[in-house]
Simulated scan of single mutants.
Amino acid sequence: MEITGRIVKDASIFKVKENREVVNFSIAVNDSYRPKGSTEVKKIVTYIDCSYWLSAGLAQWLKKGTLVQLFGRIGMNVYIGNDSQAHGSLTFHTSDIKILVFARADDTKPVPAKAPKKQQASNDPDDLPF
């Protein structure tokens, strides 16, 4: 499954048993629809809790405002609370993260994620690859 959204709060790292770490963060997914028989477009925001177990080092790039594309699966947690009622929550278990736009600094524009620049060709005829 694939989802795309903006991170709503800087990612946090939690240590769990056996020296494992998990990166937890939440994203906001914007959507819109037009109700039947209406000309008005309704906008909705869905907040999704996410977890990433593969590398805690990635947390430094998962800052508030970063636009990410996530691949993974949905997991459900169900429990009986102190109020004797059933409660549940969904978590997106992320297996791959692609950063589309990095979070902006205080007074700058958003920075698109770019592939590394290729080495520019030289004008020197002796540097020809053949």
Rank of each mutant, 00 (worst) to 15 (best):
M1G: 14
E2H: 03
E2I: 02
I7L: 06
I7D: 10
K9W: 02
A11T: 08
A11G: 10
S12F: 03
I13Y: 08
I13P: 05
K17V: 11
N24S: 11
V29Q: 15
D31K: 02
S32L: 01
Y33G: 04
G37H: 08
S38L: 09
T39S: 14
T39F: 13
K42I: 00
K42V: 00
V45P: 00
T46K: 14
I48S: 04
I48V: 15
I48P: 04
C50T: 12
C50H: 09
Y52N: 03
S55G: 03
A56F: 08
A56N: 11
W61Y: 15
K63R: 14
K63Q: 14
K63W: 03
T66S: 06
L67E: 08
L67K: 14
V68Y: 08
F71V: 05
F71N: 10
M76Q: 12
Q85T: 04
Q85I: 01
S89N: 11
L90F: 11
T91V: 12
F92N: 01
T94R: 02
T94H: 00
S95W: 00
D96Y: 05
K98G: 01
V101W: 02
A103Y: 01
R104C: 03
R104Q: 12
R104Y: 02
D106K: 14
K109Q: 12
P110I: 03
P110C: 04
V111C: 05
P112A: 06
A113C: 14
A115K: 12
A115T: 08
K118F: 03
S122M: 02
S122H: 03
N123P: 11
P125D: 01
D126H: 07
D126A: 09
D126G: 00
D127C: 06
D127A: 13
F130I: 01
